[in-house]
Design a protein around this nucleic acid. Structure first.
Lengths: 155, 155
DNA sequence: ATATCTGCAAAAAGTTTGCTTTTTA
DNA sequence: TAAAAAGCAAACTTTTTGCAGATAT
């Protein structure tokens, strides 16, 4: 069970990654990437906007969207296709699976080994040229299970 | 490879299923369920609306949404969490996986055996009480691969 | 008869876009 | 100083909702 640790002590944003991808290194972009990498959750654009605003109060939501888009194109972050009406983003671009709490909507990583050979089987069964797959588990998170929290309800 | 066949000759809508689920049997609801069961694709609400309108021209989009919602709650249809901005629906409620064409956005069934034991592994790894999982493959569909069509582009 | 449902239109929610000014290379 | 990006607001797309009239049990 490989722990997926958040990168919490940011002295400097990861300008190197941006330079390598040939996108300009703006303060906002740095802050957005930092915020996303600083959490193990999978925030929506709006949540990220609120996070970034704590240190940079007039970043606009449009900027957050634009940067998440460009950074996902360049492989610095990942767009998640989880259930629910909003896009979610992941600062960990290594392949891994996700689980969504059907009660509160929270999305966590699942550290199981990638299922092997399934892309090939799916290719044969469907006739598609498969490039990847994603798995989303659904269940009740520990917090919700322990009677605790009773947030959103996003089933 | 179990073929998933569409139910194309509808003499009568499936009133029995609705009665069993205690929801009233309206013409619109019957037509929507019929339309969805009549295709192997996974239409959006809007596509379904257009399909139903061919035989029932003043069904409203709101009615389509409301019925898909209630029928998915009662297990007559399934809401799909595929990538892309729109919800898609599936008239086949048996557990199975899906593949989405990254070029044209089309979504098909994938007849591979459900991966066994993975829910338990995910439960241990995450601490969630897992109830289910879904897999979405991504790739290029045969039509797009053969140079043919060049529709939406929904990557 | 009464509860449920429909059609319509307006409202919400989420995301994208146009434009002007500011920042980066 | 030319190209890219930010901020702001308006536009767009998809889904939900309120309400009056119609339909189902």
């Amino acid at each position: 069970m490989r722990p997926i640790i958040a990168n919490d002590n940011h002295s400097q944003p990861d300008w190197a990654a941006m330079k390598k991808q040939q996108i300009s290194t703006t303060r906002q972009r740095g802050a957005i990437l930092d915020a996303l990498r600083g959490v193990v959750t999978h925030p929506t654009a709006d949540e990220l906007h609120r996070m970034v605003r704590q240190t940079m109060p007039n970043v606009s939501l449009g900027t957050v969207y634009r940067n998440l888009e460009i950074m996902s194109e360049r492989g610095l972050v990942t767009k998640l296709n989880t259930a629910g009406p909003q896009m979610r983003f992941d600062g960990d671009t290594r392949p891994h699976y996700h689980v969504r709490c059907s009660r509160c909507g929270r999305v966590d990583d699942v550290a199981v080994e990638p299922v092997d050979g399934i892309d090939q089987a799916a290719g044969q069964a469907s006739g598609y040229a498969i490039t990847s797959h994603s798995i989303e588990f659904e269940g009740i998170c520990p917090d919700c299970a322990s009677g605790g929290n009773s947030e959103k309800d996003s089933t």
